[in-house]
């Protein structure tokens, strides 16, 4: 391969333009001084200012952050366990059901997941609020974590664990000292994925929450239903900015790491 035909170039250009133009326009117009969001009236950061004075948004952001940190942490622990069971657990009763429950939430419409969890919380008489959102988010994002981690575990050289056992490590030590450090990048990306999923979620949180807790997406939702607003543009730009910086940094770091490893390997081969 390695040769791009004109058709390839065109499809890449249009494809990425399609993916990025809407977000780019959103970011640009968040600096628009006019309240009319589709008419450019000069550069201004006033909407960022009003955003940071909006108590309701800040409260919602705080709730969202709390929920995201808690649920992604639980989801990472549970999801890693589930991945380990899927890849290394061998046969046990109800394995098919288990793997079904891991994969199904990935494609389950959010309305159904949300509705079913709400009915559960009501059925057992649980007070709805931050805790119920955390439970709901943990449940669906642990499945994402487990998919990310299990794909790493599947390519993991099993003899590394056997070597640890052979050298006298207990099962737990072998996991703690060998497996976990090696799959750590996958576990971390699993955590980040769970975190962003929780940050983004509107539908499931709307079902799972009670009057006491409003998350940022719910707040955004109730205001965008009324149309485009410059404040939401500013908020969106901030979120897009954070994600872009994060993703770009991560990919640069992993690229640099790969280059260094390759160079060191080549040096080691030449030395002999």
């Amino acid at each position: 391969m390695n040769r791009l035909s004109p058709f390839n170039v065109v499809s890449l250009t249009f494809g990425f333009a399609f993916l990025y133009l809407p977000m780019l326009i959103l970011v640009i117009f968040s600096f628009n001084s006019s309240k009319l969001v589709t008419v450019w009236a000069g550069f201004s950061t006033r909407w960022y200012g009003t955003l940071f004075q909006n108590e309701a948004f800040l409260d919602a952001a705080w709730v969202t952050l709390k929920v995201a940190v808690m649920s992604s942490t639980f989801a990472t622990v549970l999801g890693t366990m589930a991945a380990y069971v899927l890849v290394r657990g061998g046969r046990f009763m109800g394995r098919t059901l288990f793997s079904g429950m891991i994969y199904a939430p990935l494609v389950m419409p959010e309305v159904i997941t949300g509705l079913s969890l709400l009915l559960l919380f009501i059925g057992i008489g649980m007070d709805r609020g931050v805790m119920t959102i955390v439970l709901a988010h943990t449940t669906f994002s642990m499945c994402y974590v487990s998919v990310v981690v299990s794909s790493r575990l599947a390519t993991f050289d099993r003899s590394l664990e056997e070597a640890a056992l052979d050298l006298g490590a207990s099962q737990f030590d072998a996991f703690r000292l060998v497996t976990l450090p090696i799959i750590a990048p996958a576990v971390i990306s699993g955590w980040l994925l769970a975190f962003t999923l929780s940050l983004d979620d509107l539908v499931i949180a709307s079902f799972a929450t009670g009057p006491s807790a409003t998350t940022l997406p719910m707040k955004i939702w109730s205001s965008v239903r009324l149309g485009v607003s410059p404040e939401i543009n500013a908020l969106s730009s901030i979120l897009i900015g954070i994600v872009s910086v994060g993703v770009i940094t991560a990919s640069l770091m992993s690229k640099r790491h790969a280059v260094r490893v390759r160079r060191e390997e080549q040096a080691a081969q030449r030395a002999t």
């Binding site: 050289d157 003899s159 590394l160 056997e162 070597a163 640890a164 056992l165 052979d166 050298l167 006298g168 490590a169 207990s170 000292l177 060998v178 450090p181 090696i182």
Partner: peptide, 30 residues
């Protein structure tokens, strides 16, 4: 007797060196 309690050690075909540990720590692992 489980593998971690046997006075038997194995050198693996893939070597199974722990990639995150130095040569020194690999040898000291057991």
């Amino acid at each position: 007797v489980p593998p971690n309690k046997r006075a038997v050690n194995m050198m693996f075909q893939s070597y199974a060196l722990f990639p995150h540990l130095t040569v020194w720590d690999n040898i000291a692992f057991g």
